Amino acid sequence: MYSQFGGVNMITELNKQEFYKVRHITDQCNNIEVRAVINGINPGWVYVDHPTEITAALIWTRGQAGFQVVGDSQNKHFLNGLEAYMTNYIEPKLKKLNINWVEISGENESWAETIQAIFNKRNISNDIQHVFKLKGDMESSEFQDENITIQRIDRELLKSRRFGNQSFLEDKISHFWDTIDDFAQHGFGYIASHNNDVVSLCISAFVADQTHAIDIETLEGYRRRNYGASVARAFVEECKLNGINPYWDCSPENTGSIRLAKSVGMSLCFNYKIFWYNLM
């Protein structure tokens, strides 16, 4: 089923079985999250300028709770209807999910200028994001803690429900994946556990072909103890063994994340611009 707004040739929402129609636009996208949604691996929404002759698309990734616009940044039909479509159709959907902001980015500088122009009445803010990829060797590490166990996340570990805070692990996976089985089929990860609790984890958040976007989190109270570095190191080592390309996305202000990315051999690959505004 299609949902249309603004008449013929304006904006159409595709169902998941039709996402493949956008691949001719997204296959060359730098941002893995877009390709992960279009390939049907990670959950999201897709809105296009035409049901079949697609030249521009707006893609929402659930794990990021953000949008990216791709394709022709000068498509008049798409651009003229985008703000009204956001107001009348998409923003109410976000509010039902208790999301009170819109975050949107573009594939290139042309889209960045277009986004700024379309939403200039929304008190829109902007910043850049860094993306790191594996280009070097890991820093040597002598970190050891006999009270911490590093384990690979697999189906057996997930089904065992052996951890006191199992919900921390499951909620983190469910944030990016439709099901735990989807994660186990397409992604992988590592945890650090202490006293039968998961205290740090590093997982595949988005997957497109042989590229895995990393999500990493360490519980408050266990930070600055190298637990995050330990699970990130294990994750990247497996990537190197299996020909997987790790992909690390973070803000310039997140100096700890940048330092950690560099410590496991990753280097800045590209930047992209993001915009956001609050929903009233």
Rank of each mutant, 00 (worst) to 15 (best):
E253P: 01
K240R: 11
G71D: 11
G265C: 11
N242L: 13
P246Y: 05
D182N: 05
Q116N: 15
N108I: 04
L268G: 02
I99F: 01
L97S: 06
I191C: 02
Y89K: 06
T114V: 09
F183Y: 15
Q185E: 14
V8C: 04
S257F: 06
I153R: 07
S125C: 10
R224H: 07
G63F: 14
I115L: 12
Y89T: 15
S200D: 03
D209G: 00
H212Y: 05
N123T: 06
A208C: 13
F143V: 01
G44H: 08
V131P: 00
K21R: 12
I128G: 07
F78M: 08
N80C: 09
F143T: 07
D171I: 03
S200E: 01
S125D: 14
D182K: 08
M138S: 15
L157Y: 08
Q68H: 14
K273R: 15
C29N: 15
V34G: 08
N120F: 06
G265K: 01
I115H: 04
K135R: 05
S160I: 11
Y2R: 08
G81D: 09
D249C: 11
K76F: 14
G81S: 10
N30A: 13
D181I: 05
N9P: 01
D181E: 13
N254V: 11
N75G: 11
I191D: 01
H77D: 12
N196V: 10
Y222K: 02
E83W: 03
H130I: 04
A117N: 08
V69W: 03
V264D: 10
V207G: 02
Y85V: 13
D209N: 12
R62G: 00
S230D: 02
N165L: 05
S230P: 00
W276K: 07
P246T: 00
F119A: 14
W276S: 03
E238M: 14
F5W: 13
I41C: 05
